[in-house]
């Protein structure tokens, strides 16, 4: 049960700044090693269909950077160059500069970094995907293990497995869904779900 002796105080208004702080607090304060956290925010499109779109995300990365790089190196040379090119373009767009990018931008883009970046372009309608399913059913979805991710009905979960993630979790809140992913095998924890309920209990 998520009940505690004292009810959680209402959280402050939802802003991207406060979202970022909550996602960071969730990951940095967890016992488990999560690679990233994303908040998928609910809204309605012109036909009153519920859409979950990018709210904000916090990327921590893998504990073992060497492991991440060795995984990234399994991608083809063409894929590596494509990622670098996209990152350079995104960097130019953000910095507003056409000057050559610094060395950091040209560093190899790992699989989980790429998965996180691509996530910014995604959305889920009518209960689709793991985030949509969690929101639609108001029930957390916890998928742990490469085999379970690979055999998921959700394309995003299958993609996650290809990019080296072993655990993907979607926990619904009032205004959306908190998704966490890890390259480690992490078993279900009520502690994490309670933290999400407290941190993302905004109106």
């Amino acid at each position: 049960s998520a009940s505690t002796s004292t009810p959680a105080a209402p959280a402050p208004a939802l802003t991207q700044e406060s979202l970022q702080q909550r996602l960071q607090a969730l990951i940095e304060g967890a016992r488990e090693s999560w690679t990233y956290a994303i908040f998928w925010q609910s809204s309605y499109d012109y036909s009153a269909t519920t859409v979950l779109g990018w709210g904000d995300g916090y990327y921590k990365g893998e504990e073992d950077k060497g492991k991440a790089m060795s995984k990234a190196s399994s991608s083809s040379l063409a894929e590596k160059e494509h990622r670098k090119k996209v990152l350079r373009e995104l960097n130019s767009m953000i910095s507003g500069s056409t000057a050559p990018a610094d060395d950091a931008v040209d560093e190899e883009v790992t699989d989980t970094e790429w998965f996180f970046l691509v996530s910014m372009t995604q959305s889920f309608i009518n209960g689709s995907g793991l985030p949509g399913q969690a929101f639609f059913d108001s029930t957390p979805v916890w998928v742990s293990g490469p085999d379970r991710l690979a055999s998921s009905m959700c394309e995003r979960a299958r993609q996650a497995q290809v990019f080296g993630l072993q655990t993907m979790v979607c926990i619904p809140s009032a205004n959306g869904v908190v998704e966490l992913g890890s390259t480690e095998l992490i078993t279900q924890s009520s502690d994490l779900m309670n933290k999400v309920r407290v941190l993302f209990n905004f109106n």
Binding site: W54, Y59, M93
Partner: peptide, 26 residues
Amino acid sequence: MPSIPQARKASLARFLEKRKERVMNA
């Protein structure tokens, strides 16, 4: 990769900045 909507630029800018820090500290 499709273009990133304006609303997501803050997330992207933060990701790129933190990535730069990670690479520098590696």
